[in-house]
């Protein structure tokens, strides 16, 4: 949906509902893949759209809207991750591994990978989620996170290395 429909402001609920429906999967998935918690992801996604309702008039184009949503969602995920650390909630590494079902090995592999992504340091996690969920190039990731492209590339390599090692370690156990 082009942002021009909201140029007069978020007065029409139906216009805003269309915006939410168009981008809810992106925002929810960013939060879910970052935190690996569907309840927290929904809460964050709702908060992001409530904030969008306040700022939608300031956004100039669809691209601007998408980058704004990504940035706000990731900032909220980082805040939530830090809050959880302070509250010393059970870390994902401490939870038991999912049991492999005989029927759907792919599903089990994906769940295991999502859990491993959630154990990465927060900046690597952001880079991995933007690269593999949002399919962004290192240049786009660098622009989204306001960091140099070379930093993105090195974080991507290190994150992939860590994931492979962790995946290998899990396989061996």
């Amino acid at each position: 949906m082009a942002l021009s429909t909201t140029a007069e402001g978020p007065t029409r609920t139906s216009d805003f509902a269309e915006l939410v429906e168009a981008h809810q999967a992106m925002v929810f998935s960013l939060a879910y893949h970052f935190l690996h918690d569907r309840t927290a992801a929904e809460e964050i996604a709702q908060d992001v759209f409530l904030e969008l309702h306040l700022h939608v008039n300031e956004l100039e184009s669809s691209e601007h809207l998408i980058s704004w949503l990504r940035r706000v969602a990731l900032n909220r995920c980082i805040d939530e991750g830090r809050r959880r650390k302070r509250r010393r909630e059970a870390q994902i590494e401490e939870l038991p591994e999912p049991i492999a079902p005989a029927a759907n090995v792919d599903q089990w592999t994906h769940e295991r990978l999502r859990r491993l992504v959630a154990t990465l340091p927060e900046h690597m996690r952001m880079v991995i989620v933007l690269r593999y969920q949002e399919d962004l190039d290192p240049e786009d990731i660098a622009a989204a996170l306001h960091i140099p492209v070379n930093t993105v590339k090195s974080q991507l390599q290190r994150a992939l290395q860590m994931l492979r090692e962790k995946a290998g370690a899990v396989k061996r156990t």
């Binding site: 939410v20 998935s29 893949h33 759209f49 792919d106 994906h110 992504v117 991995i128």
Partner: peptide, 24 residues
């Protein structure tokens, strides 16, 4: 193969039903 699996694992997912209604 590893990157392909990672991409599949991190594909976009829809939030639970009624998400838009709850936001509104």
């Amino acid at each position: 193969q590893f990157e392909y699996q990672l991409k599949s694992a991190l594909h976009r997912q829809e939030p639970p039903n009624g998400f838009t209604v709850r936001v509104l």
